[in-house]
Design a protein around this nucleic acid. Structure first.
Lengths: 212, 212
DNA sequence: AGCTATCGGATAGTCCGACTGTCTATGAGA
DNA sequence: TCTCATAGACAGTCGGACTATCCGATAGCT
């Protein structure tokens, strides 16, 4: 197919497709001459993946490039984790400020010892500091429940991974699942909050759902 | 204190402080004359909150303004949820594309019936569609575990809320906890993945932690 | 009283990411 | 032959978050 048809089928403007090709996120069409190139189903699929990661998970174009590059290169699973986490920088991975000692301790209390130096531990600790900056420090019990939930999610992630026999498929699910899993969980958390709120404080009239 | 001292204590440049005042995120100092104003501890605390929400949780200045405004106005708890969710738009709340029917069904299967129309349900469904665009649809079991984890987190959130007797404190924790809870969970998920990975696939040499 | 460093306030400029628009040469199809 | 879509290059736009410059005034020192 030609670029205009690819644009029509994907809902992405021709200009944006060209931009993605320029940025190396999408392969160029197979050239049939100086001003003619052919695109196939692979291009359409990749385009849907790009739009999905960008729109649905908020991944940057540079991040999509890393993820897509990993898929193309067929990297091993253990590297896929690194790619996924570099492509989707943890919100607030600005390591400018050091977290407070007691926030760091609070995090250490709920994670496995070998993960104490993990960059995400500092992110979590800084978030705890921000709770305090707002005048509302959270309890250890709250944090423990979060860690428990995170463990459930991580086990589900690995079970899903082991469900796939093919190493390439495993790498794919890791590369893509890190970003998308965050979104799925955030969404389900919003929904669960609404459900739990309704359970604890029933509203007589039909509740108006908050605008997200 | 004067603006330069506020800048020094907070680590935020004078120019940025002025910008925050212009944007209405931070109150202006108390004017002592045409070119003299005094700032107090409240300003410093607010500045720390702003930097925390921006750096740690990736909230936009406009979002911080809504959250901070809610704190100042002393809004009721049920409204605080709406404020928090509008201030921290769910990644991928671009309602341009409709999720597929079977993704919508998959989400419906794991949430409470009254939440089916919730905007976050569409976000979650779109994320499932993106898994498929990557060629790796996820299993119902995976989604169920996520929903279970989300329920645990939501209960922890409400327990933490009910721990506070003061309605103003409840509103504060809601306004701030939505954004920060996402970050804490994401961080703990990364850590739990590393831990679970180590448990299932032990690495003989000390594992190199992935760069976040 | 004179001087100067700093302050508050306003306005304009910068930087970055993600596009979007314009232009040119070319060649396929009517 | 003529028109029109295309590939490819490059400049322009837009929004968000600052950052730099300028100006008038005055606190505080001499």
């Amino acid at each position: 197919m030609r670029i205009s048809e690819l644009s029509r089928l994907s809902g992405v403007s021709v200009a944006s497709i060209k931009y993605y090709i320029r940025e190396g996120v999408l392969a160029a069409g197979e050239s049939d001459g100086p001003n003619r190139a052919t695109y196939g189903g692979d291009h359409l699929a990749r385009l849907r993946l790009i739009r999905g990661l960008v729109d649905s998970a908020g991944v940057s174009i540079a991040g999509v490039k890393r993820i897509a590059g990993a898929l193309d290169a067929g990297i091993p699973v253990n590297e896929a984790f690194g790619v996924a986490q570099s492509a989707v920088p943890l919100v607030g991975a600005t390591d400018g400020t050091e977290p407070s000692a007691h926030a760091t301790d609070a995090i250490r209390d709920v994670i496995h010892p070998h993960a104490v130096g993990h960059p995400a531990a500092a992110s979590a600790a800084r978030a705890l500091d921000t709770f305090e900056a707002a005048g509302e420090p959270i309890s250890a019990a709250w944090l423990e429940r979060y860690a428990e939930a995170a463990a459930i999610v991580a086990r589900a992630d690995f079970d899903e991974l082991e469900r796939r026999p093919d190493p390439a498929a495993q790498a794919r699910i890791v590369a893509v699942g890190t970003a998308l899993g965050d979104v799925v969980f955030q969404s389900l958390r919003r929904i669960a909050q609404a459900t739990e709120g309704e359970r604890r404080f029933p509203s007589p009239p039909p509740a108006s759902p908050p605008a997200v």
